[in-house]
C-alpha cells in the first residue's frame, strides 16, 4: 500500500492515470504524443519512468500485443483502499454527495 500512495503523490503520475482513464490501452508513444498535443511537456524518458513506478505500484497493467506494449489503468489497489476505509453503509451517501457536487459544478459552467 505504501507503493500506491507514493505513486499517487505526484501530479505527473496522476495526469498519466487520468490519460489512461480517458483512453485505456495506450502505448508510450501515444501517451507522449497526446501529452504534447495538450501542451504538457514531459519527456519520453520521464513518462517511461513514471509508468514504471505506476506499474510497480500495480496502478498500471501492461499487455504486449505484437511489438507494442499497451498500458491500462488498474484501479484494483484504489478499490482495496476504498474497501478498507469506506464502509458499505457509507457508500450510498458518499455517492449522493459526489453526484450533487458534479451536478452543481456542471450547472456553473
Amino acid at each position: 500500500m505504501d507503493a500506491v500512495f507514493k505513486a499517487l503523490a505526484d501530479a505527473s503520475r496522476r495526469e498519466l492515470l487520468d490519460r489512461l482513464r480517458a483512453e485505456n490501452g495506450q502505448t508510450l508513444g501515444e501517451l507522449c504524443e497526446r501529452l504534447a498535443k495538450t501542451g504538457i511537456g514531459m519527456s519520453r524518458q520521464a513518462v517511461s519512468k513514471h509508468l514504471a513506478i505506476l506499474e510497480e505500484a500495480n496502478l498500471v497493467a501492461t499487455v504486449k500485443r505484437g511489438r507494442e506494449k499497451l498500458h491500462y489503468l488498474n484501479p484494483v489497489p484504489i478499490h482495496e483502499i476504498a474497501e478498507r476505509w469506506i464502509g458499505k453503509f457509507e457508500r450510498g451517501r458518499l455517492q449522493a454527495l459526489v453526484d450533487m457536487k458534479k451536478a452543481l459544478e456542471q450547472s456553473d459552467e
Binding site: 485505456n24 490501452g25 500495480n58 497493467a61 501492461t62 499487455v63 500485443r65 499497451l70 491500462y72 488498474n74 484501479p75 484494483v76
Partner: peptide, 11 residues
C-alpha cells in the same frame, strides 16, 4: 480481440 480492460490483483 483487443484488450479493453485489464485488472491485476495479488493474492
Amino acid at each position: 480481440f483487443k484488450p479493453k480492460t485489464v485488472y491485476v490483483i495479488y493474492i
